[in-house]
Design a protein around this nucleic acid. Sequence first.
DNA 1: CGATAAGCGAGACGGTACGTCCAGTCTTCCA
DNA 2: TGGAAGACTGGACGTACCGTCTCGCTTATCG
Lengths: 212, 212, 212, 212
Amino acid sequence: MTASAAAPRRGRPRSEDADGRILRAAHQLLLERGYDGFVMDEAALRAGVAKTTLYRRWPTKDHLLVALVARIQDEVPVTDTGDIRRDLVSYLTAIATGLDRMRRVGRADGDTDRSAGVVAELVAAAARHPDVGEAVRALFARRNALPLALLDRARERGALRAEVSSALLFDQLAGALYYRLLVTGEPVGARYAEDLVDQVLAGAATPQPERT
Amino acid sequence: MTASAAAPRRGRPRSEDADGRILRAAHQLLLERGYDGFVMDEAALRAGVAKTTLYRRWPTKDHLLVALVARIQDEVPVTDTGDIRRDLVSYLTAIATGLDRMRRVGRADGDTDRSAGVVAELVAAAARHPDVGEAVRALFARRNALPLALLDRARERGALRAEVSSALLFDQLAGALYYRLLVTGEPVGARYAEDLVDQVLAGAATPQPERT
Amino acid sequence: MTASAAAPRRGRPRSEDADGRILRAAHQLLLERGYDGFVMDEAALRAGVAKTTLYRRWPTKDHLLVALVARIQDEVPVTDTGDIRRDLVSYLTAIATGLDRMRRVGRADGDTDRSAGVVAELVAAAARHPDVGEAVRALFARRNALPLALLDRARERGALRAEVSSALLFDQLAGALYYRLLVTGEPVGARYAEDLVDQVLAGAATPQPERT
Amino acid sequence: MTASAAAPRRGRPRSEDADGRILRAAHQLLLERGYDGFVMDEAALRAGVAKTTLYRRWPTKDHLLVALVARIQDEVPVTDTGDIRRDLVSYLTAIATGLDRMRRVGRADGDTDRSAGVVAELVAAAARHPDVGEAVRALFARRNALPLALLDRARERGALRAEVSSALLFDQLAGALYYRLLVTGEPVGARYAEDLVDQVLAGAATPQPERT
DNA sequence: CGATAAGCGAGACGGTACGTCCAGTCTTCCA
DNA sequence: TGGAAGACTGGACGTACCGTCTCGCTTATCG
């Protein structure tokens, strides 16, 4: 009962085979060369596909790469054990690992550079094309839906204060991670995730009896 | 007793005049055209300087622009009124305003795109050249020193809990801002800054007597 | 029985139209500005063609200009009236005229400089790139085939001594012309051509009865 | 009896030491790199001299190199044994050898390219600057004075026909050599010199009794 | 003997062209 | 009409190298 009423598509249909080959080739090329070194001609060549075919599917290199990364990074596991601290830590650790893998893309093994690599370029790509920005934001909205729901549930069962905004809370957590990755370049490991969660949950201010 | 024995500088000294003209021209050009539209030839032309003179000072367009922005964005006012909440809010608001100005650079007035613009490009630039990354991180280290000191003082006088890490706390605050700007593209205004500070200070978890 | 099985040429063929426009524009530009003043950007601009299109066809400014001049200078008329003296004089005069025109290329009208101009630059270009040298030599081989044949015929019918080498003879004639043009800069006119031919034919030595 | 009345030169005199070092360094650099690869900065560096010092002496790279080559190539031995054939052959052989040495300048040993190398560039240099052209022509006038005198003497003593023009005769000889070197790139060896002289002296035309 | 004039080393500077790179479009032939 | 191949436009980039200029300093001669 797929709604598509046979959509009378005329002419030769797009090769689905090509789609796969392109994405596979693009993925590997990105891994080898990084964002800047990723060249459309080369991508087409490796996929055994004409450049036209690339551009028929994605209007821009930026579009292609954002789509590609969206595909790769889509799954972030969210567990709900009832222990909000534990769930958040494992979630953040997963993200941190993913980001760190992205960061190393296109680098030689010994490279100790702390810069943000591909992630930064994607952010820039989003900045260059409104629609790519839209896509990236949609991607993140989707990705973040689960953890946000997790936070909501935690609040509902009384593990979080009633006044707490889930969105804000999430910003504090994810933001710190991305800030480190994109801006200060400091490492983000499991330890950091734990400390972060602890401090976020506990709050920074000394207890204020009258504020209760 | 400064060891520098006057360093007998040989050859024609670099024209400080040129430096000024270049940075001024570059600044304006960046404002008008944005990162992508910023063209070295044009920058040289406007500064009344040969392109070689640009490249003698900065090996790359990325280098030049990062240096330029570093110059522009260097000053972020930090007040210390003794009321940590107030100080943080005003600091974050100042940053948010600065970022928002950067974001609009090179855009037509009516442009409603929520993307990160120049900031994202700078982050990407930092990702492309290790030395630019280094410079950016140094810049942020310098910029962040004052607010970090502010947090330290607040903790010392008992306004913050003793276990709180200033660095971590700062990440929660600045991170959230940058995350919104660079990734989700949601607006960051004064209201957001206030809510953020409140929640960060108060903590998310419900009071846990036994955790004390 | 030409083996070339139609070579199934794939992809977009090179625009012959572009070829024409380029060569026409380049020709005019060379006439106006001379070798040194000939600038690739300008040539592309005038031809209404991207610079890459130029470089796809000729790897270098030198290559382009040599090809261009080869095209322009290809035709040198050779007459065979049976009177070898007359034929040679008219041939040499034609060459001299052509060279002289080349020499004036890119010069203001009143310019009295006796230097070799474009011709010299072409020779230098040939010296800079082995393949250009090859092309130039091939060009001259083609150009010289006719006059050499003329000399051969003259010898066969007894107008030249049997021992005479056509190649050597040709060197004496053409060489003198080029030497004047390129090295000493003295003018080469019709009068000079006549005297040259006379002396070459007559020989320099006093008759040596015993040498017969 | 030099008219120069001590020319009251003021200021610091030019260092003759520098002159020597420059020319030596330039010579070697030219040999190593050829005309195109000869770079003023490098020449100055090697001579241990400021670029200014170069330009104070020669207004242009072309000027410097022409002066340099003039210096190197100045001496061509002319013998006068009374046997005009022999004298010419040995003279031409000497020139041919010199040219061939020039041709190989800046080339790797195995290089089989037949192009004219430095000689051609000098000719082009002469074409670019009127005064360099003048200098080159003066140089050749000086160089050619001796062989021309040789020819004159030969004619006077009856070894050459009375009507023969020395200048023209010389053009036939030297011209052929330069033509081969600069244009056709064919080798010029001792054998060629002999054949050339023979044919030039004998004349090409069959004896024409009535032309006497 | 100090003023003056030039030479010199070092290196920045202006200028200008070159050749390259790459994104994205267009044209041709083929399935 | 999709696709492969590859030429094409467009535009910036960074480089190269020439010849000039500006420092601070040195070396001569003149008054």
